[in-house]
Simulated assay, not measured.
Amino acid sequence: MNRNSNAYTFIFAVIMVIVVASVLAFTATSLQPIQNENVRQEKMQNILHTVGIDVERSQAKENFDKYIIKELALDSKGKVKFEGEKAFQVDLSKELNKADTEQAFPLYIADVKGEEYYIIPLRGTGLWDAIWGYIALKNDVNTIKGVVFDHKGETTGLGGEITKAWFQQRFEDEKIFDSAGNLVGVSVVKGYGGGSNKDDNEVDAISGATITGDGVTRMISERLKHYLPYFKSKTDMKVAVK
Results as ranks from 00 to 15, higher is better:
Ala7Lys: 05
Gly78Trp: 03
Phe171Thr: 08
Asp200Ile: 02
Glu102Pro: 07
Gly146Leu: 03
Arg223Ile: 05
Glu102Gln: 11
Lys145Ile: 07
Val14Phe: 15
Gln45Leu: 14
Pro33Gly: 05
Gly185Gln: 11
Leu158Gln: 00
Ser93Asp: 14
Asp173Asn: 11
Lys98Gln: 07
Leu122Glu: 03
Phe26Glu: 04
Ala28Pro: 10
Asn2Cys: 04
Arg223His: 07
Leu228Val: 13
Gly153Asn: 13
Val39Ala: 15
Ala60Thr: 09
Lys234Glu: 13
Phe82Asp: 06
Lys94Glu: 04
Lys94Gly: 01
Gln103Lys: 11
Ala130Gly: 00
Phe10Ile: 14
Leu74Val: 05
Asn142Val: 00
Met1Leu: 10
Ile162Met: 11
Ile119Arg: 10
Ile18Leu: 12
Gln32Met: 14
Phe231Val: 11
Ala87Gln: 01
Ala87Met: 01
Glu161Met: 08
Gly52Thr: 04
Lys61Phe: 14
Lys66His: 08
Lys190Thr: 08
Gln32His: 09
Phe171Asp: 05
Phe167Arg: 13
Gln168Glu: 06
Asp199Glu: 15
Arg3Ser: 08
Tyr192Ser: 07
Asn182Gly: 05
Tyr227Ile: 06
Asp200Met: 01
Asp214Ser: 10
Met237Val: 14
Asp200Arg: 01
Ile34Phe: 11
Pro33Cys: 05
Tyr8Asp: 04
Gly181Val: 01
Val188Asn: 09
Gln89Asn: 13
Asn142Leu: 00
Thr9His: 09
Ser93Gln: 15
Tyr8Gln: 04
Val147Glu: 03
Asn36Met: 03
Lys70Leu: 10
Asn38Phe: 15
Lys98Leu: 07
Gly153Tyr: 09
Asp129Cys: 12
Ile18Gln: 05
Ile144His: 09
Arg223Leu: 05
Val14Gln: 09
Glu172Cys: 02
Phe88Gln: 12
Pro121Asn: 13
Val241Pro: 07
Thr235Asp: 04
Phe171Ser: 06
Lys145Leu: 08
Lys225Met: 15
Lys198Gly: 14
Ser187Asn: 03
Val51Thr: 07
Lys43Ala: 10
Glu83Pro: 04
Trp166Glu: 12
Val55Cys: 00
Gln89Cys: 03
His226Tyr: 13
Ala130Glu: 03
Lys242Ile: 10
Lys113Ile: 14
Pro121Tyr: 11
Asp150Cys: 06
Asp199Tyr: 14
Gln59Ala: 15
Ala130Arg: 02
Arg170Asn: 12
Ala130Thr: 06
Ser58Ala: 08
Ser93Leu: 12
Lys66Met: 11
Gly124Gln: 01
Val184His: 07
Asp65Leu: 14
Asn46Glu: 11
Thr235His: 02
His151Phe: 02
Ala240Gln: 12
Gly213Gln: 06
Ile119Cys: 10
Lys86Thr: 13
Ala104Glu: 00
Lys242Glu: 06
Ile135Met: 10
Tyr67Glu: 09
Arg218Val: 12
Tyr230His: 06
Ala73Tyr: 00
Val148Lys: 14
Ala209Cys: 10
Leu96Cys: 01
Tyr8Gly: 04
Gly191Tyr: 02
Gln41Glu: 09
